[in-house]
């Protein structure tokens, strides 16, 4: 098991390339007449771990879905490494929220991971020994190699999360998006997942996480976007993740004692 918490974030990272990995300009998404995101601008640096933070209904998942082409924005431009996102689908990997999947579906763990290769294999090419080896390597990386033959519903929540992370790994994408990967998982899974994410960063990949646990933001992430339908603050965690910005994001509902607990008191 990797112990990701032991890897300190920060100064030894190489400087981020000048061009951000993901740029969002003036993104507006509405559900019927109700705006979910209003003119959001954001630029996520390449080779960094970024968090999207905000209260329930702030549009965090909607932002990911817009990037992934799952919802059609009313307006806005999204580019991945300078390329319009519609032409960059093969550069993006995605780990969905656990609730979005039918767990009684007849697939085994290794089949789910293989799905990450299907786009490249196309309709007809069979998965050969090279593909199977890559699937096995990615399962091993998240500590799930022994359960490769298990039906997907017979796993714990944390194990399911790791399988979906392995599916994203097998895609070997430059940009990896995760929707609440730490929601409802055990501590061992949280350690394993953050360890893998930090390894991905060390390989120069860009990781963007919709995150709900304010207490771990400073340990896990380099860059943060505080979102509540509009972009409230964005930047390196040290500058953007402040008590003031959090109170704006959460509508002043965070108790001062809580902010003190997560190291943001006295401001």
């Amino acid at each position: 098991m990797r112990t990701g918490l032991a890897i300190p974030p920060g100064p030894e990272l190489p400087p981020a390339p000048a061009e951000p990995a993901l740029v969002i300009r003036d993104l507006t998404v509405t559900w019927g007449e109700r705006p979910a995101l209003i003119s959001v601008d954001a630029a996520f640096p390449a080779g960094r771990l970024s968090a999207i933070i905000g209260p329930n209904g702030a549009g965090k998942s909607t932002l990911l879905k817009a990037v992934l082409g799952m919802v059609r924005p009313l307006s806005g431009r999204i580019t991945v490494a300078g390329i319009p996102v519609a032409r960059a689908r093969d550069r993006i990997a995605y780990v969905p929220q656990r609730a979005s999947v039918d767990w009684d579906f007849p697939v085994r763990v290794a089949d789910v991971v293989e799905m990450g290769l299907w786009r490249r294999l196309g309709l007809l090419r069979r998965a050969g020994p090279a593909e199977r080896a890559r699937v096995a390597a990615c399962l091993d990386r998240v500590g799930m190699a022994e359960l490769a033959g298990r039906q997907i519903g017979r796993l714990s929540g944390g194990q399911q999360q790791r399988v979906f992370l392995a599916r994203a790994l097998v895609q070997e994408a430059e940009l990896i998006l995760l929707d609440e990967p730490f929601a409802g998982v055990d501590a061992a899974t949280e350690r394993a997942v953050i360890g893998v994410l930090k390894d991905l960063r060390a390989e120069g990949r860009t990781v963007i996480v919709v995150h709900h646990d304010l207490a771990t933001v400073r340990d896990y992430f380099d860059h943060v976007l505080l979102l509540n339908r509009c972009s409230v603050a964005e930047g390196p965690v040290a500058q953007a993740f402040t008590a003031d910005a959090l109170q704006q994001t959460y509508g002043g509902r965070l108790p001062a004692a809580y902010l003190g607990q997560i190291g943001l008191g006295g401001q």
């Binding site: 879905k65 992934l68 969905p96 979005s100």
Partner: peptide, 13 residues
């Protein structure tokens, strides 16, 4: 993919 995880299917093109 469309049956198991349509979001992922869309996201991967």
């Amino acid at each position: 993919l469309a049956a198991f995880d349509p979001g992922f299917a869309t996201a991967t093109g």
